[in-house]
């Protein structure tokens, strides 16, 4: 791409893809913005008069909005915490030379290939169900009262399920980072008198910083829009205790048939996601260009 000619040729070549992508993105976005300013409810068909900022006002002042925001943050933060810390520990473990390393690594990655709906259902019915679930049986075996996960700790249960799904991703990326660490650096630090904890803290962790940043960025983007796991397990309940922003939009537009309100929620979600993205980039993006 050195000469002017090759640069303009390149631009010409990629323009169809760019136009397609833009259309793909812009049409739904403009429609959403357009709908968000209409009084548009599927129960009362007919005229969809212009409603100004009404939809936004009602969406933002709805008490479940506040709860949904808090749930979204808790969900994202909790899963990030568990997957990053757990991912580092698993990566350290899988990096040890051991028998059957290849098989164990593949098995560790497996949860990532399970569809969100399926894993939600499996966890709900086979693990966390107080009557049929394994945890319930274990609790009974120990003579304890089985925990009804989805009514007693609904949000934490969802966080656990989602963490289980994303842990392999974090582990995989962090393991690759760990394996790219120069062995001589570790040996040098060993000669310098660093014990295993100091080696981890001063050599391995800084080396993994960039990978951790990548894990946090990518996961945040996906975790903001968690939906299937909530739908198949708690349906956002009890009350609104597991309703996140995505689920609230679903409730407004498809359960209450209020397309205008749902669109307003969507636009708000887009804005929030962008704020989070900018914030994250600012805060940890430094790590990426070092």
């Amino acid at each position: 791409m050195a000469t002017k000619a090759s640069r303009s040729a390149a631009r010409l070549m990629i323009s169809p893809a760019v136009v397609l992508l833009l259309g793909w993105m812009l049409v739904p976005l403009s429609l959403t913005i357009y709908f968000s300013f209409l009084r548009y409810n599927l129960i009362t068909p007919g005229a969809n008069p212009f409603a100004g900022w009404d939809n936004y006002y009602w969406f933002l002042t709805d008490p479940s909005f506040k709860a949904a925001m808090a749930n979204t943050l808790l969900l994202v933060g909790g899963v990030l915490l568990i997957t990053v810390v757990g991912g580092i520990l698993f990566a350290l473990l899988l990096d040890q030379p051991m028998w059957g390393q290849g098989i164990i690594r593949i098995m560790a990655i497996a949860p990532f290939f399970v569809m969100p709906t399926v894993s939600g259902l499996v966890w709900k019915n086979m693990f966390m169900n107080p009557v049929n679930g394994i945890f319930g049986h274990i609790a009974q075996g120990l003579g304890l009262q089985p925990l009804d996960f989805f009514s007693q700790i609904p949000l934490l249960s969802i966080i656990l399920i989602v963490s289980w799904q994303w842990l392999p991703f974090a582990t995989l990326i962090l393991l690759t980072a760990l394996q790219s660490l120069d062995q001589e650096q570790l040996e040098a630090s060993e000669m310098d008198g660093a014990g295993s904890f100091s080696r981890f803290l001063f050599i391995m962790l800084p080396h993994m910083a960039r990978a951790i940043t990548v894990v946090i960025l990518i996961q945040t983007i996906f975790l903001l829009s968690i939906f299937a796991e909530i739908l198949v397990t708690t349906n956002g309940g009890p009350g609104v205790s597991t309703t996140n922003l995505t689920y609230l939009i679903y409730v407004s537009s498809l359960l209450q048939f209020d397309v205008g309100m749902g669109s307003a929620g969507g636009v708000i979600a887009i804005i929030l996601a962008n704020i989070v993205a900018i914030f994250l980039m600012r805060m940890i993006g430094k790590n990426l260009d070092a």
Binding site: D182, E184, E187, S189, M191, D192, G193, F202, P206, H207
Partner: peptide, 25 residues
């Protein structure tokens, strides 16, 4: 003390902190 062929300096630390590392330990 050992000096490695690839030097094995700690890339994320300044020269000062590299030199200080064994003393810190």
């Amino acid at each position: 003390a050992m000096v490695f062929q690839s030097y094995a300096l700690y890339p994320h630390m300044s020269v000062r902190r590299n030199i200080a590392f064994p003393m810190k330990m």
